[in-house]
């Protein structure tokens, strides 16, 4: 088992003819993902790495039975693409694109909520179920199947931690990148709930960073509802207030969003929090 996707997931790639879309479609196919359709307005009828390209999502679904969407469309057109996928009830809808205006994201999130569609991102690396399916841009070779669920606001930091797990022979059930924007779809809390209910997952890793209060909310949820062990890591302990640290969402505003507050909340909920990213795998080894 896994969360959100599995070997039966059939992926539609929006923006498949662009540089990123084409490159990562090839990587997803190599991983073993069933990429069954592409959509690029104006490019319908061609094929990209053998995948048929359509003008609209509505036209693409009946002949391909696509079930999920991966969006590489440039930021200024990404809202339209995401709403189109959500209206078609593709699930999950994974928005890789960085730089969406926040008011666009608010509409996308609200529409996904109404349609009961899982929205992942924007500005995220996607998600990977080792050995079964990958949607997004995570590197193919890092993963191995196993019992650990990984949830993260950061791409490369996830790769670093997953690589360390795999080196130590600890596999992953699903690795999920939530995205680095201030407003994103699926939250830590949503993902924790899914992992708690997933029989394959025995432990979770929560990789957070400064900004917002998603980690504090996750801590409250863990206290009340999570019985599986959780290991945490928070990036940005030494980040100064008021500066956006690379991610649009990674900013301490006033007294809100500090690493200290997040670490304290997680520890109070019984989460083992690593000081350095390199300690995460060892802490996980102690609980699985």
């Amino acid at each position: 088992m896994s969360i959100l996707i599995n070997k039966d997931t059939r992926v539609l790639v929006q923006g498949i003819t662009g540089y990123q879309g084409e490159f990562h479609t090839a990587r997803m196919l190599e991983f073993g993902t069933q990429v069954v359709a592409g959509v690029t307005p104006g490019k319908g009828g061609i094929r990209v790495h053998g995948v048929p390209v359509f003008e609209t999502v509505a036209e693409a679904i009946p002949p391909t039975s696509a079930t999920a969407a991966c969006i590489f469309v440039p930021a200024r057109f990404a809202k339209d693409a995401a709403l189109e996928a959500i209206e078609a009830e593709l699930d999950p809808v994974v928005v890789i694109t960085e730089g969406l205006p926040v008011h666009d994201v608010l509409q996308i999130v609200e529409f996904a909520r109404r349609q009961n569609v899982h929205l992942i991102g924007p500005n995220c690396p996607g998600l990977t179920v080792p050995g079964q399916c990958k949607i997004g841009i995570m590197p193919n070779h890092l993963f191995m199947p196993g019992p650990v669920g990984v949830i993260s606001r950061s791409g490369t930091l996830t790769y670093e931690i997953v690589a360390a797990l795999t080196r130590q022979g600890i596999g992953q059930s699903t690795a999920l990148g939530l995205g680095g924007d201030p407003v994103v779809g699926i939250s830590f809390t949503d993902a924790l709930r899914m992992f708690q209910n997933d029989p394959q997952t025995a432990a979770m890793i929560l990789i957070g960073e400064i900004g917002g209060s998603a980690e504090e909310e996750a801590a409250r949820f863990i206290s009340a509802h999570v019985t599986k062990p959780v290991v945490g890591y928070i990036a940005g302990r030494t980040a100064p207030p008021g500066k956006r640290m690379g991610h649009a969402g990674a900013v301490i505003s006033g007294t809100e969003g500090t690493a200290g507050s997040k670490i304290e909340a997680l520890q109070a909920a019984g989460v083992k929090v690593a000081t350095l990213a390199g300690e995460v795998a060892a802490l996980v080894r102690g609980v699985v």
Partner: peptide
């Protein structure tokens, strides 16, 4: 992002760079 010290830091990915700053500190 400009900071106060004397060791310049380059990394790839915001989370990784933030964790690099923490590690250096």
């Amino acid at each position: 992002v400009e900071l106060e010290g004397d060791l310049a830091i380059i990394g790839n990915g915001a989370g990784l760079v933030m964790s690099t700053l923490d590690m250096v500190a």
